[in-house]
Nucleic acid binder design. Structure first.
Lengths: 250, 250
DNA sequence: TCCGTTTTTCTGTATTACAGAATTATATTC
DNA sequence: GAATATAATTCTGTAATACAGAAAAACGGA
């Protein structure tokens, strides 16, 4: 049974985002359609536990240190990450491009780890750890989507494929062809489908039942990413994915 | 007014730590003295919101992706971090040692950021971002403690100064002398007081009211940290702290 | 297959979360 | 600097629901 008061409290906590990091009681209560006194109680409870902190100047609240501590606990519970992380670094060295690791999370891909040699602040912010992106138009997303259950893919298509650039695949039948191609050759290519000028090669890490537990991608400016490089990067990815699978006893 | 159901739910969430990342319903209910059905409801609510995830194999739960997303939101709400981060990197280059940024959080110091050139896995794990340490025996902690209110210092001493190494300062009067020295020369020195073989230089970033909003430290093996280096590092720190204060309009 | 353990579902009631009003604090305007 | 407006917080009764207990379902060994 869902605990409504907790559900509501999490609505309040999640009202604080990187876009809107600070908020007051009245703003939250208005946005969520809750009673201000109720919001005040929730916020005060979170504050006493360190999840929120009050700015003494303007009385507004922002996320607190306890979030960091929860993140720290989360990070080390992710045993898979411990195995994968070193590979990401090696791939970054071998390709000279940005490398991401992500997993399917509901109907999106969530970025779980990254390795970079030369920091590209623009792309870093876009795909920061913890952020999410659609499944149908990213290298990671398509690599993950290709191995999902048929009815999951049906649902993703049914919900509608948002257009981000001129090259975004928005038609269900074309996406299905693309996913078949990914399964056939073993890697996905994002050809500026999410961000103009950004190309990307992705490969899923499959478990014993051929379900993807995550995916790795190499991302960079389209000018550097010609057909030859894409194939070269796919081969590099293949080697590491094989190695990861054997390290995980898959 | 504290919302008891939320308070209890946070107890459950915080039961998951890096030391004990996975737990089942019965384990949690026993440890926290709660009814299993109650714990089940709380856990299911967290699961539906992505804060916890169930391991299909053993039915146990672990922290979920939502923690990452909350962390992502927290990170970018920390405007101070945006200013400080580049300085940490520069200090790491100038000193060749590990550099930490932390703040006082209740009666401990919390590590908020770090910069390293040569990764020392042992020390990295110890002082990972989000972890905490006592105030009285670390470079960061002492630098922060030196500028706290008198009655706060009284309370820290009254609670007892835990001993970690032979060099840990455990007596209140000696700690007070040490804090006076820190205020006088402007930096703290951790001489293997928390971890054997680890020395550290710390400096607080003071606001206009001379309250510390955070501190920066340079940490490394005691063999490399002689008196001359400590003074040299303190000077490097001083320059950056000055710069940070001016960037923050303090 | 049976038994012990653990997780999950279900339901009545005692608890408490919440709405509304009152109060305090803060910001803004005259 | 007083007055007004806005926002945050406190207080209290009651309607809503969180929780205990029991029972069922799922799981994992003997």
């Amino acid at each position: 049974m869902i605990i409504k008061s907790l559900w509501k409290a999490l609505d309040v906590l999640e009202y604080f985002t990187s876009e809107n990091p600070e908020a007051g009681i009245s703003e939250i209560s208005e946005a969520l359609g809750l009673n201000p006194s109720n919001v005040c109680d929730i916020v005060k409870t979170f504050e006493r536990r360190g999840y929120l902190q009050q700015n003494e100047q303007n009385k507004k609240y922002h996320l607190g240190f306890q979030i960091l501590q929860r993140y720290y606990a989360f990070d080390y519970s992710d045993a898979a990450g411990e195995i994968i992380r070193p590979h990401l670094k090696t791939i970054a060295k071998q390709t000279g491009e940005m490398v991401y690791y992500g997993a399917a999370y509901q109907d999106r891909v969530i970025y779980l780890d990254q390795a970079v040699l030369n920091v590209d602040t623009f792309l870093m912010k876009k795909s920061a750890i913890g952020s999410t992106a659609p499944l149908h138009c990213t290298g990671l997303g398509k690599a993950l989507l290709a191995y999902q259950e048929e009815n999951f893919i049906d649902e993703i298509i049914a919900r509608g494929l948002d257009k981000f650039t001129d090259d975004t695949i928005c038609r269900g039948d074309i996406l299905r062809q693309e996913l078949a191609l990914i399964r056939q050759r073993g890697y996905s290519v994002d050809n500026m489908e999410h961000e103009f000028g950004v190309r990307c090669v992705g490969m899923a890490i499959l478990d014993r039942k051929d379900m993807p537990l995550g995916a790795i991608s190499v991302t960079g400016p389209s000018l550097r990413f010609d057909e030859q490089k894409i194939e070269q990067f796919a081969n590099i990815l293949r080697g590491h994915v094989e190695e990861i699978r054997s390290q995980m006893f898959l």
